[in-house]
Write a protein that binds this DNA or RNA. Structure first.
Length: 562
RNA sequence: UCCGCGGUAGCUCAAUGGUAGAGCGGGUGGCUGUUAACCACUAGGUUGCAGGUUCGAGCCCUGCCCGCGGAGCCA
């Protein structure tokens, strides 16, 4: 079990109370609504239904209340309107019911009083996530979450749900992921998906504004690639193909035709990684530009990230707050981003100054852990002295939260000495490890570029540095706060002979790439591009712990359901 | 592939080798302004699977399955 559970924390729950069939005498009206014919009718045309059944007033002047989305409710204060949606929370007093209706645009508290006898009986029988339409007077009310509420006159059940599995309390990751198809309805996943939408739109708008052409690259590709062990094999009639892990080689071809191109699509990695940063299926935005050198590629990535951050801040601040993300952290993301060469990064990792910083930090965190443990003991002691369930529950919640934080910090601390040692003994020539990236990126308040990696750590298509042939003209962009690499790119090798040599060194067969080599035969020009990982970027923007929350249906090594 | 942690009620978790429990959720009753409502009552279990040690195993041992996150690798 992962330390601690994911807090659902956003699902207005179903308090203990009446359910279907509970009070036959009171739910008589509802049973009628549940009959197939009635259900069909209300589903067919809710507006007519609401107006007709309402009788009073509307029948006389032959008007149906307008169908309104919850987000627009404020513009209809004082009017009688109809809302449709799903029941996402309910509280029930003896003679009053509070229904929280969710329609995808917002949540509205609908108040049903005993005076509206039929609607009140219907409300008594509602289960969480049932679909319904309600008609009544909209009005502003400070007591309502969202500021507006509806006094219900008519309530029509569109579909009655059986007891809903996702409760308002916290659930474990495994449970929530197994119910991802329903979990998506909760506030938190909705917020993440909205930021994702904005992120993708921002990227598209960015490239469109700069004259890029969208080019789709194939998903089924012949073996080749870089390392076949990281590709998913696919049976393709009588041969073996693979799911693409990048569209880059094809984009290089397209950029020689169109100048500036980009691809946005899924990509697949068969690495057996099981970490919070890995998915086997994820999405990438990949631009590729002709007549571009490394500096141009870096500047493009910098502009893109700034543009995306700016738009997310402009359009999705409420969602960031739902996720507990402090928008101020993102406001620091401005040009220029710091730039380090790989060699400077290596030096930095080995420096005595960094060692001291890391060790101090380690000591501080150990003290913090000790303090938390003491706090936990104190809470547990207090709990033993309490008998009233309500008071106990509050303490128990605090205990659970503390335990979660302690477990996470303990794990972090147990990794820390290894990370520090690995940074200190970092050997020039190898790629930066995840912990090295974390250590580096924590030193800045905005993303940082690391450039000019050793040739042997990088792919064959990256252009070798003219001044120092041990290096390639590449760049990685590390997100701050320890989120790690979100962009990887390079200037591409445009010299046919060098490219052939690099391929041979990497054990690749040039004949498999003949079409790619043609690009260096017919009008080869300096060019380059990069790939930006949508999910990792989103994880950083939203301040999440795990990439799997950023994609509707994550594919990880351990999970392909739902 | 390796290392570590875990699997107990629908969910989240307790339980020195000695009678399997709580909160939430479900059910029943009460309450006309609730905000994760509250109060009372109630049902709910082959402790992941298979062996073993023991008078006695949720707990100890062995093997397996599943999940989690860390390493390697990567965006």
């Amino acid at each position: 079990m992962e330390p601690g559970g994911l807090r659902n924390g956003d699902r207005p729950g179903l308090p203990p109370g009446p359910g279907p069939g509970r009070q036959p005498s009171r739910t008589g009206g509802v049973l009628v609504l549940l009959a197939p014919a009635a259900r069909f009718q209300s589903g067919r045309d809710v507006r007519k239904e609401g107006g007709r059944r309402g009788g009073r007033g509307f029948a006389a002047c032959d008007m149906n209340p307008p169908l309104v989305e919850i987000a627009d409710l404020g513009r209809h204060a004082g009017e009688t309107v109809t809302l449709r949606g799903w029941l996402c929370g309910r509280r029930f007093g003896g003679g009053i019911a509070f229904l929280h209706l969710r329609d995808g645009t917002g949540v509205c508290q609908c108040v049903v009083e005993a005076a509206a006898a039929e609607a009140f009986a219907a409300a008594a029988a509602l289960t969480l996530e049932s679909a319904l339409s309600v008609t009544g007077a909209a009005r502003a009310d400070d007591r309502a979450p969202g500021g507006y509420e509806l006094t219900v006159r008519d309530l029509a059940l569109i579909h009655a749900a059986p007891p809903y599995p996702i409760a308002r309390k916290e659930h474990g990751v495994d449970f929530l992921m197994s119910h991802r198809h329903l979990w998506l309805r909760s506030r938190r996943p909705v917020a993440v998906l909205r930021v994702r939408d904005t992120l993708v739109r921002a990227c598209r708008a960015f490239f469109e504004a700069r004259g890029f052409t969208l080019v789709d690259t194939p998903i089924l590709v012949p073996g080749a690639g870089e390392d076949a062990s990281t590709l998913f094999p696919v049976e393709y009639f009588d041969r073996r193909l693979f799911l693409a892990q990048t569209g880059q080689l094809y984009l290089e071809s397209a950029c020689m035709a169109l100048g500036k191109v980009y691809a946005f699509g899924p990509t697949f990695r068969a690495e057996k990684s099981k970490t919070r940063r890995h998915l086997t299926e994820f999405w990438m935005i990949e631009p590729e530009v002709a007549f571009a050198e490394l500096d141009d590629v870096i500047e493009l990535a910098e502009d893109l990230v700034c543009c995306v951050v700016e738009r997310v801040l402009r359009e999705r601040e409420p969602e960031l707050r739902v996720l507990g993300r402090d928008p101020e952290r993102l406001r620091a993301v401005r040009k220029p981003f710091p730039r380090l060469t790989y060699s400077e990064a290596a030096e930095r990792l080995r420096s005595p100054g960094l060692l001291k910083t890391l060790e101090d930090e380690f000591q501080r965190d150990r003290s913090r852990l000790a303090a938390w443990m003491a706090e936990l003991e104190e809470l547990e002691r207090r709990l033993r002295g309490l008998s009233r369930p309500a008071a106990r529950e509050r303490i128990e919640r605090q205990i659970a939260e503390r335990r979660e934080e302690i477990a996470e910090l303990e794990q972090d601390l147990s990794n820390r000495p290894g990370h520090i040692a690995s940074a200190q003994s970092f050997a020039w020539g190898s790629d930066l490890g995840g912990s090295d990236e974390t250590i580096l990126s924590r030193q800045f308040d905005r993303p940082v570029f690391v450039t000019h990696y050793p040739v042997r750590a990088k792919a064959f298509y990256m252009k070798q540095c003219a001044e120092d042939p041990r290096l390639v003209l590449n760049m990685d962009l590390l997100a701050p706060e320890g989120y790690g690499e979100i962009v990887g790119g390079s200037q591409r090798e445009d010299n046919l002979d060098v490219l052939l040599r690099r391929m041979t060194e990497k054990g690749l067969r040039p004949e498999d790439y003949d079409w790619y080599l043609d690009l260096r035969r017919y009008g080869s020009v300096p060019h380059g591009g990069f790939g930006l990982g949508i999910e990792r970027t989103l994880t950083w923007l939203c301040g999440l712990r795990h990439v799997r929350e950023t994609i509707p249906f994550p594919r990880t090594r351990g999970r392909v359901y739902p």
